[in-house]
Write a protein that binds this DNA or RNA. Sequence first.
DNA 1: CGCCAGGGCCTCA
DNA 2: TGAGGCCATGGC
Length: 223
Amino acid sequence: MTLVQIYQTLLKEYGSQGWWPINNDYKKRNSLTNEEKFEIIIGAILTQNTSWKQVEKALNELRKNNCLSIKAILKTKKKTLAAYIKSSGYNNQKAERLKIVAAFLLKHPLDELQAMETEKARKLLLSVKGIGPETADSIILYAFSKPSFVIDAYTRRIISRIGLCQKDVTYEELQEIITQNISVDVSLYNEYHALLVEHAKRYCQTKPICEKCILRTLCEKNI
DNA sequence: CGCCAGGGCCTCA
DNA sequence: TGAGGCCATGGC
């Protein structure tokens, strides 16, 4: 089974996912405001090793307290920020990260990052403490609409179970494997990652529900 | 009650 | 550069 076939199968099964959710809403958008891009960046940090449901609550708390802007995050006490985002877990650490990112965006405004070449923006984002490869790729792909394929635990799980990579494959290795086998296309990258997440949530869980898996017949492991 | 969730940093070899 | 510990809350 090829990576293209996997994508086509998942898309046919689940349909377009409408990522990234903004203001509690999944839908396709043709362009994003800076406010929306900022919310994506904050969400990308809050969702680190945390389910999106908890992140939505945290984002809504921030919104309710007028704390979804660079200035507001910078002037709000870390303790207060941590209380707002409590539901998303690791809240002290994430409060610190939000402040670091806000300061970073003050120095490098969204328009500047948007205009940057993809690899350059990625490296710059990776230099920020609290932004690792997945968060950086999520920001580039979903906030800036540039092709940087997002690898996460779900991607690694599904692709390794199918047999297209080792289960301890590194981030960059798996990113290579995938991008070498599909075309460079923002919509494709966007949809593919979202579909993998959906599939992992529904069937390819830590304890997989293989009987109901749409990829079952093509899965080499065929658990 | 234990496991797990749309990771990343630090430390120590 | 890679493995292991740590960060924390809430759903199930």
